Amino acid sequence: MVSAINANGPAWTSEIDTGDRVLAVNSQSTTGQSAATVTEWLRGPEDSALMLRLLSPGQRRAHTVTLRRAKVPPETVFAFVSGPIVVLRVTAFSSDTAEEMSQYLDQATQDKNLRGLIIDLRGNRGGVLQQAVTAAALLLDHGVAAVTSGRDPQSNHIWAVQGGDMTNGLPIAVLVDGRTASAAEILAAALADHRRAVVIGSATLGKGLVQTVAQLPDEGELFVTWSRVIAPLHWPLQGLGVMPQVCTSLGEADTNRALHTLASGRLANQAAITASRAARYPLTVPNILAIRKACPAALGNDRDISVARDLINHPAWYKTAIAAIPDDAAPAAQLSAAP
């Protein structure tokens, strides 16, 4: 039985759906065969033909699908449906992550009953910076997703996006935790700073440095820190991390109080949000710790998803959390390279 379809693979655009029963592979019946045997039949040389005989649920007549085998990179985006809400679990940012997100978003927005989107970045250690920027472009109409700043003029770059929000302004909640790092933090910061999403969870890791790899003559590698990442509202990701609008790392009782405060039109974590957005490089360690202690880094838990659903299902709560992000009042000089 087909349990899932890789968004990067040739089956994604074919007439294969999850739940289909595989009756035959290249005319070989699967009856009585083990899953390992059928899986081995599915493998083969790149670009070779693969013919599948399938039976879809509720259908009495089987159909045949012919594919061309291809090398498929591991998936990094996984989609789940929770009533009128779609959850996208992003495990890393590889060379195909933004394309995977685009395909799932395109599919999800076909549902006219869709009420919101949850992007789960918990445990995501990052990856390709450009993929985080491209992912942000899928959900922002325009604006700066991030700025990289360093000593070498070539390291200075303003990562601006102008794509078009695929969800047409649908409410978005982003889940983060203490393991969320690097490119994942860039996406969370971009969506939060543009008031496009509510970030829920704990303070993130705070890995806001861009590194380049130089190959050495002895086949070794030298990692060189090239630049630092500055969020759209001009605060540094390095050390500070992303401060969520709704903190869930202080325990269930504190989370419940935060939701009750939201219901009254205020944000419990407002002081930390304001302080984090006002922070500017260079930051001292005591300053970083003073801001982060409002929502200590922690592992994500099941409560995060529940809180995200609550915000999407209560538009007034969502608007209060979105409005907690301050306006961009920083001078243009903040975008210049650091000394």
Rank of each mutant, 00 (worst) to 15 (best):
residue 5 I to E: 09
residue 17 D to P: 00
residue 25 V to N: 01
residue 28 Q to L: 08
residue 35 A to S: 12
residue 38 V to H: 03
residue 42 L to I: 01
residue 48 S to Q: 15
residue 52 L to N: 01
residue 52 L to G: 05
residue 58 G to Q: 06
residue 60 R to C: 00
residue 63 H to R: 15
residue 65 V to E: 13
residue 69 R to D: 05
residue 73 P to M: 05
residue 75 E to T: 11
residue 77 V to S: 01
residue 77 V to L: 02
residue 84 P to Q: 10
residue 96 D to P: 09
residue 97 T to I: 00
residue 97 T to K: 08
residue 103 Q to H: 10
residue 104 Y to C: 04
residue 108 A to Q: 01
residue 110 Q to Y: 08
residue 117 L to D: 01
residue 125 R to Q: 11
residue 129 L to K: 07
residue 129 L to T: 06
residue 130 Q to D: 15
residue 139 L to C: 08
residue 145 A to L: 06
residue 146 A to Q: 01
residue 148 T to Q: 12
residue 154 Q to E: 15
residue 161 V to W: 11
residue 165 D to T: 04
residue 173 A to N: 06
residue 177 D to E: 09
residue 178 G to D: 02
residue 179 R to N: 14
residue 187 L to E: 02
residue 195 R to P: 09
residue 195 R to Q: 14
residue 204 T to E: 05
residue 205 L to S: 10
residue 208 G to V: 04
residue 213 V to Y: 10
residue 214 A to S: 11
residue 220 G to P: 06
residue 222 L to S: 14
residue 223 F to D: 10
residue 240 L to H: 01
residue 241 G to K: 01
residue 242 V to N: 00
residue 244 P to Q: 08
residue 251 G to D: 08
residue 257 R to A: 11
residue 265 G to F: 08
residue 266 R to I: 05
residue 267 L to G: 09
residue 268 A to S: 14
residue 273 I to L: 11
residue 274 T to P: 00
residue 277 R to K: 11
residue 281 Y to H: 15
residue 285 V to F: 08
residue 285 V to R: 15
residue 289 L to Q: 15
residue 289 L to S: 12
residue 292 R to N: 07
residue 298 A to Q: 12
residue 299 L to Y: 12
residue 302 D to V: 10
residue 303 R to M: 14
residue 305 I to L: 15
residue 307 V to T: 04
residue 312 I to S: 08
residue 315 P to R: 00
residue 317 W to H: 12
residue 318 Y to E: 04
residue 322 I to W: 05
residue 326 P to G: 04
residue 331 P to Y: 02
residue 336 S to P: 00
